[in-house]
């Protein structure tokens, strides 16, 4: 896990692969699986969650010395809920189609474990700059993971990528768009990430 002794570069890169919130930390799986049915939705969800993550990390880091320990969780939740409401209002006003497509998962960003997890584990203990880098890195890691799932599920389940047809629908494996397909595909990618992690560790030891 990230700690205060990391360099700025190390803080930023941690979330990309080594501590990827989805594949390594296994956080926020509910919205990840539910909204990764196609690449467009996955990208929209990834961007919305990343925006909230970066802003919440900055805000929570900047008030960390004011908020007493006993009330830090309700304070963080309030900050995150306010930021999610802002994202929800902005999406409703300026990205109506995406807002309709993402549906109830936009308000549910409030309870996304990645955001609460980073607030508690990192932003509440580190400077604003490092918290921003952590939010950005973790956010990009989340976007990468959810986009990978979204593209895989859309390509296999519909034969399209971002709506552009690659092959006839007759060859589509529809189960990949359904919940069981989401579990199968995320399991497959987690196995790959775990394998890469084991190989890297064994190389370091050698």
């Amino acid at each position: 896990m990230a700690n205060a002794s990391k360099t700025s570069f190390g803080t930023f890169t941690a979330g990309l692969i080594r501590e990827n919130p989805t594949f390594a930390q296994v956080l926020g799986l509910c919205p990840t699986l539910a909204t990764s049915t196609n690449a467009n939705n996955a990208l929209g969800m990834g961007l919305a969650a990343t925006g909230v993550l970066i802003l919440s990390n900055i805000f929570i880091s900047s008030i960390r010395k004011i908020i007493p320990d006993q009330i830090r969780i309700p304070a963080y939740i309030s900050v995150i809920a306010a930021l999610v409401t802002i994202v929800d209002l902005l999406m409703h006003g300026y990205m109506y189609h995406l807002w309709t497509n993402l549906g109830l998962y936009v308000p549910l960003i409030v309870v996304n474990c990645i955001i609460m997890g980073r607030a508690e584990a990192f932003a509440s203990k580190n400077s604003v700059w490092k918290s921003f880098l952590d939010g950005l890195g973790m956010g990009l890691g989340f976007i990468g993971a959810i986009l990978l799932l979204g593209i895989t599920r859309e390509v296999l389940g519909n034969g399209t990528i971002f709506g552009y047809r690659l092959w006839p629908k007759a060859y589509a494996v529809f189960v990949t768009v359904l919940p069981p397909g989401a579990f199968l595909i995320i399991g497959f990618y987690m196995a790959i990430f775990h394998h890469i992690s084991i190989v890297r560790k064994s190389r370091k030891r050698a």
């Binding site: 049915t37 807002w99 309709t100 497509n101 549906g103 109830l104 359904l178």
Partner: peptide
């Protein structure tokens, strides 16, 4: 015109 509470990929 509004199905924002439906599950993406299913009801949506």
């Amino acid at each position: 015109i509004n199905y924002s509470s439906e599950t993406p990929g299913l009801g949506a």
